[in-house]
Design a protein around this nucleic acid. Structure first.
Lengths: 205, 205
DNA sequence: CTATAATTTGATCAACTGATCAAAAAAATG
DNA sequence: CATTTTTTTGATCAGTTGATCAAATTATAG
């Protein structure tokens, strides 16, 4: 199943325009949030007319869908590259946690935009993204489960429910993004390190 | 600092009306989400006119603020009652986790409403609630930190950063609410139990 | 029962929303 | 260069939004 407009569009040099609009969407979401992020505001930020956005994207949903996919790909690439550079499950787990936190620190605006879209945008059936059963398997989620599984098979890790452990790790990471007070109190390196130690204890046999 | 309208309002028998509107807000948020939850939709759900909502609440922000506070109080009460029924830090931690998950299972609509408001509503300065430095200390957060601290002082728990551990626990709990796929895969009792075991290992010396 | 106060409604408002379209401008083609 | 295609704009659309207000209704008080 391919994208309606995003992919079968003529796709000329105007890919640059889509990128430009993407940047404008990120900035707009970061600055005024989804609720105020009208096509007019986005167009203004990009220095173009609203009709031009409509020319390159079927509708607002298509635009947000495109933006979300790019954001997810960017984050996955960042984390997975750094994770797969390690070899043992223990090292991979450490790399996974540290890279995830690092990404949030390095691209805060991308994260805000991601949150804004996930919690505001809805499918044509009016189902919010955050309630979606994750259409395609989330690569970050499955990579984490693979690491944990490999650790158990190698007997590096003890016995635990892999899905629950993975959820706990992801939730712990996400907490750092959502909780503004946390970011102000604990620096990212400390949080990373403490999290690694915490889950090392939880994971070991 | 008291509420602008919510509190200094005449407060007659019409408290019942506010409760009625509260229920309508919950249902509307659950069914169609914040973005579509216009005053017209809420009024329709409550079987009253939109002007009546405006009569009892200063504006939409005031309405959402009132709703959010009631939701937070309800959740806190539920969890804290069950947590404080236990005596040792270890038992309290177990009770805290189990009650938190149980609440989500028992009042799913309240949770959806909570999420919708936290991630959509904004202050007059256009700061989203989820970016707020948590104006008043979150009672659920501080209770958890108290439990962990007490456990360390009693030497029941080992050495770890209390704030990070508390965030990890909260994040792990919240993950179960946010991740629809998780809810469909792992039943709440299993998730609770696994989480308790996981953090027992992480917390012990 | 009357008068005063509180509650509720329906009508109405300007502001903004996403989307469409003909026409203009720019780019690509031959 | 002329023509065809792609890109871009400005004007415009109907629909929705939150909010206001005078008037009607209901409750309360004396």
């Amino acid at each position: 199943m391919r994208n309606k407009k995003t992919e079968d569009k003529k796709s000329f040099i105007s890919e640059a325009r889509r990128a430009q609009i993407f940047d404008a969407v990120i900035m707009t979401l970061d600055e005024i949030g989804y609720i105020h992020a009208s096509l007019a505001q986005i167009a203004k930020k990009a220095g173009i007319s609203t009709a031009l956005i409509s020319y390159h994207f079927r509708d607002k949903n298509d635009l947000m869908d495109y933006t979300l996919k790019k954001l997810l790909t960017d984050m996955s690439t960042y984390v997975l590259e750094r994770t797969q550079a390690s070899s043992t499950p223990g090292d991979k787990l450490r790399a996974y946690i540290e890279a995830s936190i690092a990404y949030h620190v390095n691209k805060p605006k991308y994260n805000i935009a991601l949150i804004e879209i996930v919690f505001h945008a809805r499918t044509v059936d009016n189902i919010p993204y955050y309630k979606l059963d994750d259409d395609e398997e989330n690569p970050l989620e499955s990579e984490l489960q693979q690491i944990l599984l490999a650790g158990q098979e190698k007997k590096d890790f003890g016995d635990f429910n892999v899905v629950v452990m993975a959820s706990a790790i992801r939730g712990s990471i996400d907490e750092y993004i959502f909780n503004k007070k946390l970011i102000g109190t604990i620096d990212p390196q400390t949080y990373s390190t403490e999290l690694v130690n915490l889950f090392n204890r939880a994971v070991l046999r």
